[in-house]
């Protein structure tokens, strides 16, 4: 079933009460609908990410995509904003958690919401989805090829990302992980290490690694797009959300 939807740019209360930009896509019906906080990739709050938010709305979820670079570059083109954020070392973890919390609260405040919220993040957002799920009470989380959940970032990396695997005991919800077998960040070995940590902590998780796919295989406008992996990945995501957000 495909839902008619409404999508618009809004302002939400983020970390520290800051007003930040967000893109809200929601089905037009009365609901109740589950919610999805979409965490954008390192290249920023761009059309590809907004398209994903609309896809969730068309599937019957309220999707909120916060612009994590709102503070560095309000109103800037997405690529300029991403460059500015990168030059400043990326998004601090504490601020990310506050912004995701704000987006989740906004979804829950809507009369059509069913009170359940998941996160999904791509690239750097995959790591941040895991971070949010270990820091906030969520109903489900999806990590799409997030680097540095495990593994030590290289010397002089320039971004603030630090490993998060020590937080696994605090994971508040089931985790779906989607990875490319040819990716190096995260590498298959790092994915296996995360899987082991989740297993040892007794957490509910589901991991899929796609042969022939590397990083960013969901990005239809980039050469990294892999049809088979992306198609199966979307099916896995919707099955996961159907199970945990209903």
């Amino acid at each position: 079933m495909s839902y008619d939807l409404k999508a618009e740019t809004i302002s939400i209360s983020g970390h520290g009460g800051d007003r930040i930009e967000a893109y809200l896509a929601q089905p037009l019906g009365a609901g109740p609908y589950g919610g999805v906080v979409v965490i954008h990739h390192l290249p920023g709050y761009d059309e590809g990410m907004k398209e994903k938010a609309r896809r969730f709305a068309a599937a019957g979820y309220i999707a909120c995509l916060p612009n994590l670079y709102s503070r560095e570059a309000p109103g800037a083109d997405p690529d300029d904003a991403a460059a500015a954020a990168r030059a400043q070392g990326g998004v601090p973890d504490e601020r990310l958690v506050g912004d995701v919390d704000g987006a989740a609260k906004h979804i829950k405040s809507l009369s059509t919401a069913n009170g359940k919220v998941a996160t999904i993040g791509y690239c750097s957002g995959g790591r941040q989805s895991f971070l949010a799920a270990c820091s906030l009470k969520l109903d489900a989380a999806v990590d799409c090829y997030g680097a540095f959940v495990v593994g030590t970032p290289p010397e002089g990396m320039g971004l603030r990302a630090t490993p998060l695997v020590h937080m696994v005991k605090d994971l508040s919800c089931p985790l779906l992980g989607l990875f490319g077998a040819d990716d190096q960040h995260p590498s298959p070995a790092e994915v296996a290490e995360l899987e082991m940590a989740l297993s040892e902590a007794g957490k509910t998780y589901e991991f899929h690694t796609y042969p022939g796919a590397s990083h960013a295989f969901f990005e239809v406008s980039r050469p990294s797009y892999r049809h088979d992996a992306a198609t199966d990945g979307w099916e896995k995501i919707f099955a996961f959300f159907s199970q945990y957000l209903s």
Binding site: A87, C123, S124, A147, G158, D183, Q184, S214
Partner: peptide, 8 residues
């Protein structure tokens, strides 16, 4: 891959 490595 996203290398994350950035030289300034």
């Amino acid at each position: 891959m996203c290398t994350y490595e950035t030289q300034r």
